[in-house]
Design a protein around this nucleic acid. Structure first.
Lengths: 379, 379
DNA sequence: TTGTAAGCGTTATCAG
DNA sequence: CTGATAACGCTTACAA
């Protein structure tokens, strides 16, 4: 590549003397534009860079723009990054790409970021440890970092030094963040099941330190306690927040005597696993057991029975997080410091959740659940 | 940030004269390392850069490494990129992030890329047009591009100029690529259903120009024809490759007289929609209708009945594509040109697929399907 | 309003 | 084997 005639006079097309079309092998640089417009290179930079309305004569500006257009000039972001000390790139670290919920978070963030001219470097915690990702990201001089439920508190002090950080679904007094109203999610699930007459409640969720999961659980528990419903520890199952985790936990729950009639799952994947396990064992939903999930991932509507769940605005969550991060990055050291604080306050309010009642929840069976405890006879 | 004392003599700590720990506000550069090691900056670069075994005296090397270690030096990838004319970043353009299959492709590619020190810039076609993504990617000087089923043939000629490209599931004589054995996928589905005794066959798939989808369909059709089974156009439904598309098409198929007894879907999302639609209308699977999908996404095992499908090694697909792309990038203009060709040939062989028989397919009903045509009476 | 000069942190090409 | 010196493409004082 880039062989030979980079700066040589253009023998092959003698009629064009000054600033001919650059040789095809080279990319058009701002110098080419400046030359063609007959201005100095920095002037071209002034016109083409940020500061669209900079101190440049209108006529000059026109010539530069025309030249850029004619040459098909595209700025080199790498060079710009080096010069400005900013990379216009954001890191996004997520717990697990397999979870459709985080995918929506990413999609929301990506849209905001890319429409603001920022690239998104995606990092999957399940593929490499966070510390390794952070290393890479810093080497690339990212301007900001979105951390989704990674347990930022456990990160080494200096791993985040000099980088703007926004946490998703994880409160901290060290970094700003955006969260969903996880506790209300648990509360809504509890209220829904209580209204359906359930008293034999169970829960399946991870034992992780992910804040949202803990709050969902807490909201559920508190609402049950307030209603005077017992929370029995053998009905509280710990499992990874995956379909398989849900299956295994549900199997354990179905073996209990008396059997719980309603199960709240920390997220939809778990709930899908729980539903699946019931059907596998011939326990019919929602007549024998009700299952409520959380997130409202797309697949929730496509399993049978359709999953009752708490809708969480994943896309919006990602989008807000990205917006907050961008404002943090761009408003640094500007006179409007207070504006940052204000917008941060507005942005960081918890996002609302809502119950979506579908087919996996139903009125509690009138007779004690234990009567039909073991349904293994059906297929 | 970076205020003041960047290059000034260090008034505040007079005791340390040469190469003190850099002021906390500044990142450690290779110059700091060189200074501390008492060598010139380019020498430090030689030791710290690539060419781990470059012509540098062992003692010197040690000193440099020690200094780097002590200072916690981390190379600045942006600067390196500018100097080397390479960004160590790959673009990955995918049709739709919502499809779990492409997610696996991405995961495979990301793992390979990141372990080779390359970043991955993810681009979702469904969020922005490909051309816009390409613009951004080129501005960032990406070294290579992975295009997953984007219809590369329709892209403007120069949009890809100077970038190494590898196509995923899309043959081309302009660019190398990696594909799955899509035609065999269709064939396996057909053979499976034929063996189960089905003759009333239907198909649901997108009308897109995505090669893999077309080949799956072709393999299916050809196998049916070879077996002497009629392919009726009213049983060939065009729909987006989504769950919703599958639902709508299945509704149309269920309205036909006589009703098809078996449906092959272009991917699992479509198949999940088809299954869902059957259950919604009270048509029971797999006794009344058999459904076969393609991809074997995780969710295929979690719907009821579990989905019979053709497993396609998505992760491996992404991983191979990434490996091929990296070898293209790194073996440019090296004496081992032939090695590239060889590896390309090996890598680009089609990836094998296999049938996973699960619960959504079953022996064809003995009586003509029309006997039980309209099952709307149940639930 | 514009051009000149100095850098951003690396890598690469040379002399010594 | 090593150290100046010049790129890489762009931004940003500062001077004209």
């Amino acid at each position: 590549m880039r062989i030979g005639n980079t700066r040589l006079p253009c023998f092959s097309s003698p009629q064009v003397m000054s600033a001919a079309l650059p040789p095809e092998s080279r990319r058009v640089t701002i110098r080419d534009v400046a030359a063609r417009a007959g201005v100095s290179q920095p002037t071209a930079s002034l016109v083409l860079g940020r500061h669209p309305t900079a101190r440049v004569a209108a006529a000059t500006r026109e010539r530069v723009l025309a030249a850029a257009e004619a040459l098909g000039y595209r700025p080199n972001v790498v060079a710009r990054s080096l010069a400005r000390g900013r990379s216009f790139a954001l890191g996004v670290v997520v717990p697990d790409l397999r979870n459709p919920f985080v995918l929506d978070v990413i999609a929301g963030a990506e849209r905001v970021a890319s429409s603001a001219g920022y690239a998104v470097l995606l990092c999957d915690q399940s593929a490499r440890p966070v510390s390794a990702h952070l290393e890479t990201l810093r080497a690339r001089q990212i301007d900001g970092l979105l951390l989704d439920a990674v347990g930022a508190a456990t990160l080494p002090e200096d791993a985040l030094h000099g980088v703007k950080v926004v946490l998703i679904d994880e409160p901290s007094d060290q970094w700003p963040g955006v969260s969903t109203d996880a506790q209300t999610a648990g509360k809504l699930a509890a209220e829904h099941l209580l209204e359906l007459g359930h008293r034999e409640m169970a829960f399946i969720g991870p034992s992780s330190n992910v804040h949202a999961f803990r709050m969902r659980e807490r909201g559920f528990v508190q609402t049950l306690r307030t209603a005077g419903v017992a929370v029995r520890s053998d009905r509280w199952r710990r499992a990874p927040a995956t379909v398989r985790g849900g299956q295994q936990s549900m199997r354990a729950l179905l073996a209990l005597q008396p059997r719980p009639t309603a199960v709240f799952c920390a997220n939809d994947l778990v709930a899908i696993g729980a539903v699946k396990q019931c059907l596998t064992q011939g326990v019919s939903l929602p007549t024998d057991v009700s299952v409520v999930g959380c997130d409202d991932i797309e697949m929730a509507r496509f399993i049978t029975p359709e999953l009752t769940t708490i809708a969480v605005p994943a896309r919006e969550l990602g989008a807000r997080a990205a917006r907050l991060l961008l404002s943090l990055i761009e408003h640094v050291n500007t006179p409007v410091e207070s504006h940052v604080v204000a917008s941060r306050r507005a942005l960081s309010r918890q996002l609302p959740v809502r119950l979506i009642a579908r087919g996996s929840s139903f009125a509690a069976p009138a007779s004690p659940a234990s009567d039909i405890a073991s349904g293994r006879l059906r297929t």
